[in-house]
Amino acid sequence: MFIPQPICTGCQGDHLEWVESSGRGRVYSFTTVHRPPRPEFDVPYVVAIVELDEGWHMLTNLIGCEPNSVQVDMPVEVSFERMSEEITLPMFRPVG
């Protein structure tokens, strides 16, 4: 289940625990952004929904590839990118 919720959204029970993901998955959908919401983002950049091998989905950025080379179903893996002293973000890179 993602994003995190206070109860299970399937049965409304409390039986939740943190499970570590493999960090591997495929591109479910993507968009290359040319007009950023605020000027702090350098364009173009790729926003994607990644479907993890465990079956859940997350929003992220794809890095380490040309925007026009991205395809749906492309295999990717997580890459923890250090943005500042306090902030590290789970982005994804193409595998292989």
Binding site: I3, S29, T31, I49, L89
Partner: peptide, 26 residues
């Protein structure tokens, strides 16, 4: 109104155009 500052979203440079683009692309 196109750029809600929510956790899990704002850090990726997402806003409404990109969110709806993800639906269209699929």
């Amino acid at each position: 109104w196109t750029r809600p500052s929510n956790e899990f979203v704002e850090c990726w440079g997402l806003y409404t155009a990109a969110e709806f683009a993800l639906i269209a692309r699929r």
